[in-house]
Design a protein around this nucleic acid. Structure first.
Length: 846
RNA sequence: GCGGGCGUGGCGAAAUGGUAGACGCAGCAGACUCAAAAUCUGCCGUAGCAAUACAUGUCGGUUCGAGUCCGACCGCCCGCACCA
């Protein structure tokens, strides 16, 4: 009679052993091949959630597997510790952001340890500590020196709730990505990182990232948004000129107007002296930004009275201010070709401007364009003088060549990507290490004065930037002239912090951000795992930062992450109170699964304090979130079932890139499996006799599980292990069975390390299973000597036969024709044709 | 609107163009038990007593053979969006 596996006891014991022996500390000087496995580090919000558990379990299985296959593995953990929530907590609860953050880190670290992750805690870092952000300030100044940082006054996205500037990447549907507040435009002096200098490289580099999801590469490519075309000048009737950019220079002769953005200098100048124009400009600014509003918004224009001279002498074009032209793309001005651009078509229709076909649609060449919509398909140029008969690409080249020869335009490439505005008017971030002096201008903080530390004595009782209103912090002597000067009171966007932490993990000297040689020995990260929500923001910034570091000569690395895996979310059913005429906020109706009662017939109720019961509506399965109250706290689950069962469940069933629905039954099943393993590990050993079928199954499983883990197909690895366990359970006692059980310990060790250590300690080969080698595959046992082949008639399965492996085609055909079922099914007919796939099937075409 | 992805049992899912549904969950039946839990055994796409037929969103195509490849459509999900 075996006892049950006591997960709580075993978990605590082995976690302590790993800790004491620093089993998972990565050695820089190891002779083994190096492997860097990294999961996106968490924001210390207070508690870990199921998403973290899933993310880190996946990385952990890979890290442990890599150790077993002879790699020196770097698998570190740290904290993305700066950010708004700490300041919100300070405002709400009166705690210092630092204390709040550090307490959260301590709590979450304990929770992570409770899951037994094979992490190198000796390299733990928190971005909010001066020994991290001080080095970031040094890197910022390196970038500054190299001209990759600049300051400019610009219209920025202002979040009126968080009272800070947001990057374009952080504005979603016109709202702040954190606060959800409608973003306003403000003019502010801001620091920018020159990500656009690397726009081309960042697109090119995507091509080399063949271990990234196509989806992420595509999203980044679209975000960078490279367009090639012609930038050229129109001479204006008032003696001035206007620059426009187009990707369709071939349609030049179809132009019937020029349009500028409302905040274009020409529009601004006109508005300054013309009240109607000013009113129109104002109206343009009020337009909505949501998808639906843009969809339905009418194209509006204001005729400036100016005309532009067509560069090929094809007349004068009216110049409009138009609400659909964007100032921050291209030059803020366009020429309109109504026949071949839908927006221009709508505009021309409204203002009765000529619509002239210049690209033939099949044999439709009539200059009078009488179709319902613009034509943007392929064709030959028509009604275009010297371009007639050319295809679109040839016509583009011809126009660009003539523009360049004539000196009035040049072929040019335009990107959607904007430089990265990094100034944030917040306290809890990396102080920007620059001093502003009335005489010397902007002066970098001297290296020996780094880090520029955040002051501790700050207040959060009023909105705004605590650094700016701190009585003394910003007042310093100018490093240049010694006069009174002011520190920059902005802090860096926290995405800067996460743009190089993976390098600091690899190497963390005290006196500089990282040691180049050591960092290069670990990087790039072999496998990076995290949520797809970072597909653009974090992953693009980190790629840029790495290239910027290379540009300033600090590291020879183009791409930081060789392999990227974006895991799915952990989801749960949602529950809402069934109250018909509720007039409160909809969020108030969500009910946590922990607060539900089950009534008759499985109906769900919410028990009120007064003893009443409100019926519950089951909502859809959604990502666990606080707002929907459908979260499951991992901590009590781990306490109840043990770390291994939780880890096992995280890996089971759903493919890792897809969503995983949390279920009570699922975790129960995982727990049962852990107990099944234990019964096998503790079962009587026979020691005698061999069982070749089991040997084969074992070695097949070793190979399959290895392949599945390498492919990150954890659900398949789990399924193969279930099969092996079932096979061992059914097998009669034998030495083979004993070997299979001993080997099974190592096969489950990456997924369920605690039970594996526990069993290894009493039945294993000594040492820790965490240090054991992955079992070797006996290739001879992978070769089956018999195979089951399918016999089909006209592609339909009629019989299966067990035949020796490698049987000649004629013999397989003969065996198939000899089958009773086949003889009956053929009903005397002779097959016209026979297809034999060796060791797979015989298909008789009758 | 543009771009991308996905549609397979009651559910999560497997399946180099070659036996559709491995494995798990749920369910059903049985064993053990005074009983329950735990555990074990068997069944488990639909119809049919069966032989068999029909089954991978729909319709077509390629092929000896299609969940897989191609085309059209329907539905869902994600990303971007007045980007010139």
């Amino acid at each position: 009679m075996t006892t049950r596996f006591n997960a709580l006891k075993a978990d605590a014991h082995w976690q302590r052993v790993w800790d004491e022996r620093t089993t998972f500390a990565a050695r820089d000087d190891s002779p083994k091949p190096k492997s860097y496995v990294l999961e996106m580090f968490p924001y210390p919000s207070g508690k870990i959630h199921m998403g973290h558990v899933r993310n880190y379990t996946m990385g952990d299985v890979l890290a442990r597997y890599r150790r077993m296959t002879g790699h020196e593995v770097l698998h570190p953990m740290g904290w993305d510790a700066f950010g708004m929530p700490a300041e919100n907590a300070a405002m709400e609860k009166g705690v210092h952001p630092g204390n709040w953050t550090r307490a959260n880190i301590a709590a979450m670290k304990a929770q992570l340890k409770r899951l037994g992750f094979a992490l190198d805690w000796t390299r733990e870092l928190a971005t909010c500590e001066p020994d991290y952000y001080g080095h970031e300030q040094a890197l910022f100044l390196d970038f500054y020196k190299a001209g990759l940082v600049y300051r400019k006054e610009s219209a920025v996205n202002w979040d009126p709730v968080d009272m800070t500037v947001l990057a374009n990447e952080q504005v979603i549907d016109g709202r702040g990505w954190r606060s959800g507040a409608l973003v306003e435009k403000r003019k502010l002096s801001q620091w920018f990182l020159k990500i656009t200098q690397f726009a081309d490289e960042l697109i090119e580099g995507l091509g080399s990232l063949d271990q990234w999801p196509d989806k992420v590469r595509l999203m980044q490519e679209n975000w960078i948004g490279k367009s090639q075309g012609l930038q050229f000048r129109f001479a204006l009737s008032d003696g001035g000129s206007v620059e426009v950019f187009t990707t369709r220079p071939d349609t030049m002769f179809g132009a019937s107007f020029v349009a500028v953005a409302a905040d274009h200098p020409i529009a601004q100048a006109l508005a300054a002296r013309d009240a109607d124009a000013a009113a129109f400009v104002e109206r343009c600014k009020q337009g909505g930004t949501t998808a639906a509003e843009l969809e339905t918004q009418e194209k509006l224009g204001y005729d400036t009275g100016l005309t532009a001279t067509h560069p090929f002498g094809a007349g004068e074009l009216p110049v409009y201010i138009a609400n659909f032209v964007l100032m921050d793309y291209g030059t803020g001005a366009v020429f309109g070709v109504p026949a071949h651009d839908q927006r221009d078509f709508d505009f021309a229709t409204k203002y009765r401007l000529p619509i002239r076909r210049v690209v033939a649609d099949g044999d439709m060449t009539d200059p009078a364009f009488d179709e319902e919509a613009a034509y943007s398909g392929p064709g030959r140029l028509v009604n275009s003088h010297f371009l007639d008969g050319l295809d679109i690409d040839a016509a583009k080249s011809e126009v660009i060549a003539r523009a360049e020869a004539g000196g009035w335009g040049q072929g040019s490439t335009v990107y959607r990507l904007r430089d990265w505005g990094v100034s944030r008017q917040r306290y809890w971030g990396t102080p920007i290490p620059v001093i502003h002096c009335a005489t010397c201008g902007e002066v970098p903080v001297p290296r020996e004065q780094l880090p520029v530390k955040l002051p501790e004595d700050v207040t959060f009782d009023v909105p705004g930037n605590p650094l700016d209103r701190h009585p003394t912090w910003k007042h310093v002597a100018c490093p240049g002239c010694g006069a009174d000067a002011l520190r920059d009171t902005d802090t860096l966007d926290t995405f800067a912090d996460s743009s190089w932490y993976f390098i600091r993990f690899a190497s963390q000297p005290d006196d500089r951000p990282f040691d180049r040689t050591v960092a290069e020995s670990w990087l790039p990260v072999g496998q990076y795992i995290g949520g797809v929500e970072h597909a653009i923001l974090h992953l693009l910034y980190a790629r840029f930062w790495t290239r910027a570091l290379r540009h300033v000569g600090l590291i020879d690395l183009a791409e930081p992450f060789t392999g990227l895996f974006t895991q799915g979310m952990v989801t749960h059913e949602t529950y809402r109170l069934d109250i018909p005429d509720h007039d409160g906020p909809p969020g108030a109706l969500w009910v946590s699964p922990a607060d539900l009662s089950v009534g008759e017939g499985g109906a769900l109720f919410f028990q009120t304090e007064e003893g009443g019961a409100i019926p519950i509506i089951r909502g859809r399965v959604e990502k666990m979130s606080k707002s929907k109250k459908n979260t499951i706290d991992p901590e009590p689950i781990v306490d109840q079932y043990g770390a291994d069962a939780v880890r096992w469940f995280m890996l089971s069933d759903s493919p890792p890139e897809r969503d995983l629905e949390w279920s009570e039954n699922g975790i129960e099943g995982a727990w049962r499996f852990v107990q099944r393993l234990w019964r096998l590990f503790e079962s009587e050993k026979a020691g005698e006799g061999s069982d070749v079928a089991l040997d084969r199954k074992l070695h097949r499983t070793i190979a399959d599980v290895a392949a599945a883990i390498e492919a990150l197909s954890f659900n398949k690895a789990v399924a193969k292990l279930y099969e092996l366990v079932a096979a061992i359970e059914k097998a009669a006692p034998s030495a083979s069975r004993d070997t299979a059980i001993a080997t099974l310990m190592r096969l489950v060790a990456p997924m369920a390390p605690h039970i594996a250590e526990e069993a290894w300690a009493t039945h294993g080969a000594g040492g820790l299973i965490a240090d054991a080698a992955w079992p070797a595959v006996d290739a001879a046992l992978l070769v089956e000597d018999e195979v089951t082949i399918a016999v089909q008639i006209n592609g339909k399965l009629r019989d299966t036969l067990t035949l020796p492996k490698g049987l000649a085609k004629e013999d397989a055909e003969a065996a198939a024709l000899a089958s009773d079922k086949i003889i009956r099914a053929l009903d005397g007919k002779t097959p016209r044709k026979v297809i034999v796939v060796p060791d797979r099937l015989v298909n008789l075409v009758a």
